[in-house]
Design a binder for these strands. Structure first.
Lengths: 339, 339
DNA sequence: CTGATCCGTTGAATCGTTTCATTTATACGA
DNA sequence: TCGTATAAATGAAACGATTCAACGGATCAG
């Protein structure tokens, strides 16, 4: 169906090797020949078959990327930044969405192996370290995104989630709240576990402060709404004074339940805090306090770390770690008690 | 570096053809041989080289998809639904983000051609109809997403944007507003043009109603904020009574400017209406009225239409068209005048 | 015991590109 | 005029998987 290099060669009256040179090393070809070949290419609508090129080259120009949840604006932003940076390096990105499911994650890794990708950017959910190590042994570099690795094995870009969790809880405590709740997804997700650990250590420093842990089905707006619903049904006296959600989506859901379904006021009755600082955080019903993570920088850096390991002289793996930042908005303002 | 089928064959003491049969037609191989080969596969960590397989097969198992803006939750939802449906059909999706830039769009089409994708799902921005036609002539089916095609050329999934624009403006008029403004992105984007046309025809039916057209730099929250800023600076008496934005992101931006920067009240001073009904629309400072488009159905249907054209007996192209739906929330509630 | 049938296995040919050692043509200095 | 250096074009080999006609061996009916 599609024209091959051979047909182009026949039409232009040259050898296949010459056509290949026109495509890849135009300087090696004399101007008149070049033009004849170009005309043949246009006339036949020739498009290079990438599978054949890759087969010969032994490697592709693509980078595989696996994120935990592509519908979370935070990961979407990371992925987009990575894509832009990859384009600057002449590479393409194949994006996979694991949804924190180790099985889907493994399927994507296999897909990437079959594609012989240059490298893999991954936010791990299950334990794929052995898988990644065998990849590396085969010459496929991996960069852990939003996660750390044993140094000297892979590069990684991460944000200090424990510090972020600490900052969040500390902020809530500073505004006078004592009975806190943490809303997370599965505790198996490292980000969730770290943010909780950080929050707990802040709470433990303050005498009389308590931290209750609630688990949402997943980390979406819908799951947040369900948790919020459960909270509201306890009755007012049993409510925590402040809620810290492991990401902004959960916080948005909790917010909806508190305000819309019940008549509670945020922050007067309950303070609310999210994580990630997605673009929408400042546009919610009550603008949401959050912990900002530098999404663009994470994506960009991940691709750069990968590139470092690809050249002829691969650099040793590096760990880059960003520090998150507290963004205080209305949802953690003064409480009714203090007002 | 990576083991090939040949090495597996050598280790298992069989011919390469047998290894291939183990991989693709295990039923044709006797149990003992099968086991020997499997062991060799595991021992060598063999992973099939997809480039070679594709080269031989002449076609890949991937579908190319181009969306206008992957950071817009509406398109993200469409893409995710498409991905799920593709997985059900044993296909993978390569997602490209054109950002409404015809040049990037063209680059992705070329990439997909080189990859010899099964088919292409595309929300066109520039005029790529000739490009798509030549694709089709080469046996690569295309499905237009959120856009219509000349029937009998490609299949398409679309939503009636003119009707949506009409519904939006009509709703604003019904709540008593007469001086309306439309905030869109580039008028070259068909969705924008259609929604405007629909709005205009609703306005034209009502004597004394006016529609002012404002153009944002692009269709993001940031661009919306800039437009809102310009509006606010005019002074109160020059403000429209209602603003209809071509998508929810713009509306969120406009909302921020109106409320946060200036002291205007929504909907009392100005009514505001978005488009798409993304998940966040109900969680904004003032819950946003919008026009709902069935994102999941669009994505799913697009893949189904593509599949229809791929079998041995390809069906003729079909056009599927959804009707949008008005979702009235607080941002278009009663005005101060009528209250 | 022969011939037909069936199952499992074989290995060469093929896909389209890139590479590279050769060949061919051209120009230049001695 | 010859030899040599330079530039351009050639075409066979290789990449790794799949396919398919051909082959060998076992089974069985006659």
């Amino acid at each position: 169906m599609a024209a091959s290099i051979k047909e182009v060669a026949a039409r232009a009256g040259v050898a296949v090797g010459t056509v290949s040179n026109v495509l890849n090393h135009p300087d090696r070809v004399s101007p008149p020949t070049l033009e004849r070949v170009m005309n043949a290419v246009d006339a036949l609508g020739f498009v290079r078959n990438d599978a054949a090129r890759q087969l010969r080259a032994g490697q592709s120009r693509t980078i595989g990327m696996i994120v935990l949840d592509s519908s979370n604006p935070f990961f979407a932003a990371v992925a987009r930044a990575a894509e832009n940076e990859a384009t600057r390096h002449g590479a393409d990105i194949i994006l996979g969405n694991s949804g924190s499911d180790p099985e889907r994650e493994a399927r994507y890794v296999t897909l990437f192996e079959e594609q012989r990708v240059q490298g893999v950017l991954i936010s791990p959910s299950g334990d794929i370290s052995s898988r990644l190590r065998s990849l590396r042994d085969r010459g496929v570099a991996a960069v852990l995104v939003d996660s750390e690795s044993e140094p000297a094995v892979h590069s990684s870009v991460s944000v200090d989630d424990t510090a972020g969790g600490f900052m969040a809880a500390e902020h809530l405590l500073e505004t006078g709240r004592r009975r806190l709740a943490f809303v997370g997804g599965s505790p198996g997700i490292r980000q969730v576990a770290d943010r909780l650990a950080g929050a707990r250590s802040a709470v433990d420093r303050v005498p009389g402060a308590r931290l209750e842990v609630l688990q949402a089905a997943d980390m979406t707006v819908l799951a947040g709404r369900a948790v919020g619903q459960d909270l509201v049904e306890r009755g007012r006296s049993e409510l925590p004074e402040a809620i810290f959600c492991a990401n902004d989506l959960l916080a948005v859901g909790v917010l909806q339940s508190l305000l819309l379904i019940n008549g509670l006021r945020v922050p007067q009755d309950v303070a609310l805090m999210g994580y990630d600082d997605i673009d929408f955080a400042q546009s919610t019903v009550v603008p949401l306090s959050s912990i900002r993570q530098p999404a663009e920088e994470i994506g960009r850096t991940a691709v750069q770390l990968l590139q470092e390991q690809l050249g002829d002289t691969p650099s040793p793996p590096r760990q880059v770690r960003f520090t998150p930042e507290l963004v205080a908005r209305q949802s953690t303002g003064p409480s009714a008690a203090s007002a």
